[in-house]
């Protein structure tokens, strides 16, 4: 099995909101210098999904990370978890894209680096939470896509996916090659091991530019973006507290339920 996993480096989503500033003129988010870079958590789950398949059957797991400020100890984490190869797609012409242009660049890179049976992505990236990349890659490659997976198995040349829906999950089977996007319901990603870290330190990532992957730069990055960000702002949150007065707890409960229903919380 040739598995490709797309991993995006993002500012740590666990960092306190106050450490992010908005550059209104450029419509960009600027994290404070102290904020660590991490692999987007859903993408770590994508790695985990790939490694679970690799645990059960002979597979090669190739990881692609795209970006220009990649931090080597961050993007190498998938290798330390057990992935086999790392490809870094680095080019200014690929920056500031939207879901469509990013998917185009990644799909182009995937075709370039070799055979693929299964492509796994996180359901969305923890920085912009758009969630178009996985489906976009499938569209570019003209293959099937299953989203929000909680379990991914390869059975008889097909990929069987437990897909999260509102009140449970559904089981979907599609032929390979296919794209699957995974959700947090997949479970905790495994830790990097010391052996993996020592191995990762010895491995060199393959660095590729837009030209190396054969991408048409009119379709990548900002130039290829189909959507336009109009306004970026931090919403003002207001907290209001209302005390419910009642004769006894039962009445208070009923009144509270009524209020919550009025506020459309229930």
């Amino acid at each position: 099995m040739n598995i490709v996993v797309c991993c995006k480096q993002v500012p740590d989503p666990e960092a306190p909101p106050a450490s992010f500033k908005i550059d209104a003129a450029a419509n960009k988010v600027a994290p404070a210098p102290g904020v660590n870079q991490v692999i987007s958590p859903f993408d770590e789950q994508a790695i985990e999904a790939a490694l679970r398949i690799k645990d059960g059957q002979e597979s090669t797991v190739r990881v692609i990370s795209m970006g220009t400020d990649l931090v080597s100890d961050v993007v190498k984490k998938p290798l330390a978890m057990g992935a086999d190869e790392l490809y870094l797609i680095q080019d200014e012409a690929l920056n500031d894209g939207d879901g469509i242009s990013t998917a185009y660049a990644l799909a182009t890179a995937i075709k370039k680096i070799g055979e693929y049976d299964l492509i796994i992505c996180g359901r969305q990236a923890a920085d912009w939470d758009v969630g178009q990349t996985g489906v976009g890659i499938a569209e570019e490659l003209g293959i099937a896509c299953v989203t929000v997976a909680k379990k991914v198995e390869v059975v008889d040349g097909k990929v069987r996916v437990e897909r999260v829906v509102a009140d449970g999950y559904e089981v979907v089977e599609v032929p390979l090659p296919a794209v699957v996007t995974v959700s947090n319901e997949l479970g905790e990603p495994r830790y990097a091991t010391l052996k993996g870290i020592m191995g990762a330190a010895k491995k060199q990532a393959t660095v590729m530019s837009a030209a190396d992957i054969g991408a048409d730069t009119a379709k990548t990055g900002k130039a290829g973006a189909k959507s336009k960000l109009l306004k970026l702002y931090i919403p003002v949150r207001e907290g209001k507290c209302e005390m419910i007065e009642a004769e006894d707890p039962a009445e208070a409960g009923a009144l509270l339920a009524q209020k919550l229903r009025e506020a459309k919380v229930l």
């Binding site: 091991t193 870290i197 020592m198």
Partner: peptide, 13 residues
């Protein structure tokens, strides 16, 4: 790189 990766891994663990 190794030292940074060890830090991240053990911190997480």
């Amino acid at each position: 790189e190794t030292q940074l990766m060890v830090r991240t891994m053990v911190k997480d663990f």
